[in-house]
Every structure is written in C-alpha cells, then in structure tokens.
Write a protein that binds this DNA or RNA. Sequence first.
DNA 1: TTGTACGCGTTATCAA
DNA 2: TTGATAACGCGTACAA
Lengths: 343, 343
Amino acid sequence: MLLSVAHRKASARLSDVARAAGVSLSTASRALADPGLVLPATRSRIQDAAARLGYVPHGAARALASRRSRTIGAVVPTLDNPIFAASTQALQHRIAREGYTLLVGSHEYDLEAEVKLVSALVERGVDGIVLVGLDHSPELHRLLVKAEIPFELTWATDASRIHHSLGFSNRLAAASVAQHLMELGHRDFAMISGRTTSNDRARERVAGVREALAAHGLELPARRVLEIAFGISAARTAFGRLLDSGERFTALVCGNDLLALGALLEAAARGIAVPRQLSVTGFDDIELAGEFSPALTTIHLPVADIGRIAAERMLARIGGGEVPKSHEIPVHLVVRASTAPPG
Amino acid sequence: MLLSVAHRKASARLSDVARAAGVSLSTASRALADPGLVLPATRSRIQDAAARLGYVPHGAARALASRRSRTIGAVVPTLDNPIFAASTQALQHRIAREGYTLLVGSHEYDLEAEVKLVSALVERGVDGIVLVGLDHSPELHRLLVKAEIPFELTWATDASRIHHSLGFSNRLAAASVAQHLMELGHRDFAMISGRTTSNDRARERVAGVREALAAHGLELPARRVLEIAFGISAARTAFGRLLDSGERFTALVCGNDLLALGALLEAAARGIAVPRQLSVTGFDDIELAGEFSPALTTIHLPVADIGRIAAERMLARIGGGEVPKSHEIPVHLVVRASTAPPG
DNA sequence: TTGTACGCGTTATCAA
DNA sequence: TTGATAACGCGTACAA
C-alpha cells in the first residue's frame, strides 16, 4: 500500500469526482454547477460519482475562483431585541433558499464595534451586507465602497437617497402615536426612549413625537424624556424615577415595546391604573404586546418582512439586478387597551 | 496611461503591499501574520504600505492556503426564543475577539432543515460548529465526521459521552421544579411542553417531572400534558383548552418561560389567581420572568455563559487544545411569586 | 459537448 | 531573516 494512500481519507475533491466519472475537471464542474451544459448521460455519471464519494465543494476555492462567496453579512445592534432576532432569522431563511449563508454580528450600539464587525465581514468576502439604521461610522462606508460591496440600510429610509434603504419613517410613525394620544385628549406627555446617540431610529421617534405635539402647541420638555439603555428592568427603574420626580403627565410614549412593557409593569406594581390614570404606548408590536394585560397600543412593524425583503433586494443586486433605491414598508398604529382618554 | 492602470482600482492585494514595501510576497505575508518573524525595520515598512494601500486580506485565498476559515457555525432551533438569541450573541461576541466570524442558521425544529444548514456550513469550511441539544439526524453526524469538523452540543449534556457537550441535565432541573411544587403540597399536576419530537430538552423536562412525581407515588397522565408549538399566544390557547377540558390540577409546569407567560396571561384573563388558585412554573429565566407579575418561579440558566463557554471550548479545540468531553453548567431553581401551597 | 490550461490571492516549504 | 516556488481546489476563457 502506498503511503500517499494510507492517509488519504480527506474528503473528495472535484478532481476525484472527475476521475471517478471518467471526465475532465471542467466537465465535472459544469455538470454540478449548470447541469444543462452537459449531456444527460455524462451528467448522471458525474452526479453519481459525486454522491458516491460524498463530494462537498470547497467554498473557499470556489469563492477564490468565482469571486463570489455566496455569503451575506448582517450586522444588528443586538439580538436581545426580538425584532432584530426575528428579522435576522427571516433574512437567513430567505437567502438559504438561494444557497446563501448568513454571517452575523451585533455591536450593542457601538459604532466602533460595528466598523470592526463590518471589516471582518469584508475580509470574509461577503457578497452583500445588511445594516440597521442610518447612523454609521464614515469609516464603515469607506470600507464598503472600496470593496465594492453592496449594502442595505434597514429599519429606516434614507431621506437623502444616497444609499439603498428599506424601512419606514420612524418620525411619522412616532408622530401618529402622539396624534392618537392627542385625539384622546392628552396634553401632558412624557417619553422613555432608547439611547439616541448613534441611533437614528430612537432620535427620529423622539423628534416625531415632538413635532406632532408642537403642531398642536404642546411640548415635550427634556426633563420628561428619559433616555435609557436597553432592557425591561432598566425601563422599570427609569419610569419609577420619572414618577418620583414629581412630573405630571397622562400619556407615556415609549420608544419601543420592551420599554413600554417595563413601564406597564412598574405602573402595575405601583397601583397606577393603565389606561385610566395613564396611557402608555409602545413601538414594534412584538408578540407580547398584544397578549399582555393591558394590551399595548403600539406601532405594528412587519418584522419578518423586513428581513425577507432585505434578502430579496440584496439577492437581486448581487445577481446584477436593479432595485429601487428606497423601499417603503407600511407600518401602522394598532390601538389596544393601554390608551384611553385621560382620567 | 496604460490600460491596465485605467481600471486598476480594485482593492490592493498582498503582492501590491510587497512591491510597495520592496520585499517579497512571503516576507509581506509574515510581517502581517506573525510580525515577530521579521526585522522591525522591514516590518514597519510593510505595515505602513499595507495601511497606506488599505490592504484587506482576502479571506477565501487565505482559507484555501491555510485550510482554516476562521469562521464558526452556529445552528439553533429559532432566534425567536430569547435564550437562543442571547447565547448566540454571546458566542459571536467571544469568537470575534479572536478574529473569528459567526455563520448562523435556524431550523425551526426541523431535523432535515438542520442537515441542510449544517451541510451549507461544512461547504463554507467552518472551523467548528455549535449545535443545540442532542437530537440530530445521523446524516448530520456523518457530514461532520467526514469533514473532520469539531462540534459542540449545547443546552444538554451527552450522557453517552460520545460527543463534546456543554450544558446541564434538563431532566434533573425539571425534577427539581416538580420537587419544589410537591414540597409546597401539590399533588395534581399538569404540564405544557414544547414539541417533544426531535427535541431532547423538551422530552427530558417532561420525563424529569414524571420521574419526580413517580418517586412520590404521583403521576402525570398524558391527557394533562399538552405539547404545543412555540409561542406565547399558542400557549395561551393551549392552556385555555386544558382548563376547558375539565381537568383539575393545582400546579402547572411549563417547559419554558414563554409558555409559562402565556399561561399566566390566560389565567389572569380568566380570573384565575396565581399562585392562590394555581401555581405556575417556567424554565429558562428570561428577563421578563423576574419582572412579570406574578414573578415567575423558574429554572435559571446562565444563558450568556453557554454561548461564551461554547466559544471558548470551540476555540481551544480548533487551536489543537483539549477540553473535557462534557462541561456541566450549574442551573438552579429560582422561587418567586408564581408558586405557593395549593389553596 | 468536452477538454486544456491558466488564474484566483494567500500560506507554507524549502533553500539561500 | 528573507525569497522563490509550489500548493490550495475550483471556475472559465479558449480551443478542440
């Protein structure tokens, strides 16, 4: 027995398949990549051989030769927010159907960390990148442009239309929440928002509420806007502090559902009746929003659609197709039990 | 101007760096990979050139030559369960520190889908794969073994010790829940479980409860065990059906916190007082469990630790190191307000 | 329709 | 310490 055979248990390469089928390398390659280009007879010989040998194409070699990794990158702020978990999952699901694989990373709202993640993805040769929001380091754009990697901004629409984006107007959506509350008769507002630094969605939501109120001669003073880091328990604490501060308000607008849930829990713990004494709104419409008691009035986002459509736009662009620069996703207010006229 | 220069805006390769620094390809490679091997003077010339040209190593080429992709795969049932989202995030975070990137996929509890995902990862040449649970298609093992890709099973420990695993005994943990309830005086149990087919964790949890009850001469009849697909609202519906069926029980054990939350919400909607009339338990200890009212008695899992440790074990193995075949994660019962002696 | 031959960008072996 | 050169496994003009 030859030595070279002794340790040759490594997985089969395309050349092995070709030899086993009695054809050349290129024919084997074609038969597997685009079966139509090969005669049925030889094609099946090759496919049989591939199956028999358990041939698995070597992604790196393929990527090197074809200049395509069939890999897409997704960078989200955090997977701890169910909306990003769900959209990421939908994204992965959709691209998997086309043979693409998803590389993911989360940066916890740190722009520097995001640059590092993206640069790692660029190195891996991803064919496209899906990002969240509009706020990104200029360094990140340089990287992407230089590497000529297509990218999609999601969860917001780029008003400047410079970049490809897919989302909705966080500002208008938030304004519609405020509008709803004003129509119920509320005039004293408070707000709990996520951190607004490097988070355009959070900023726009606050701005939207402010604008809507201003249009009716109302205002939202800074002391009634709490900016907190992510998390239900953090939201409880923050809301508690707001209450303790002595501020008076009948409507509490929250930047997302998790924050609203925290507020609802704290309100319940303190015996504050929602919506009788206080109206509370969320944003996102996570599953729990509709099940909770009181059910949460919120903005419904088609979360899975965002991931799916991002995938489809990305795939189209990678395939050389054209897509509209900006894709608007319909969102709408869902009025439930957490809002009512002020007591 | 030469034509070749006209369109030569493509990103710099290592050879460009080498030329710019006046060294050979191999020296440039070394200077970047293992700076210690190169004289300080030449090293900095090379590093400067690389920075100036904005050199980004080509991952595929690197993978092809080094037979390492510096990529790890993670396959989870679903990212819609916050425990998997959190552990995946921790995993990504940890491997990123070592320059590794994470490929993820979710299979929605479908073993066939899991095989496809894993096979896609194998094709991409991942250096290691992290899986959830013990139930997998034999096909999946064949793939992994043939490609000689190390893998870790998580969220459970492999009693047979055949595979590397990292987790805890779902059976014992579930038994401790039942034990707690029996100590409170409960004798009539019901259970809401996730689907048990191809889900060893769910099966073990049901089995654990049954065993603990049996040790005290109690039983959990099949008609009192509901198996449902994932989701809070599905859990609500299921629990409603259980109540309507006329079964009498004072303790409801749930396979995870989301199911328990659904049950708590439905109980509240029907005016069933928890824990006075009914005790409810969960499993996982998601953030909401401790914040909800009533706060949920549940099994606490160090979710982020699971991802982090999986990462560390994987990295160690990839680096040629040894790790214990099985790593036991401590979990414990957290008694909160949702359990009390039967009314 | 099939085969030949070269190139993809890097690492690794070996010699200098 | 550095340099030449051969892999690495596949895709694809181009030729047959």
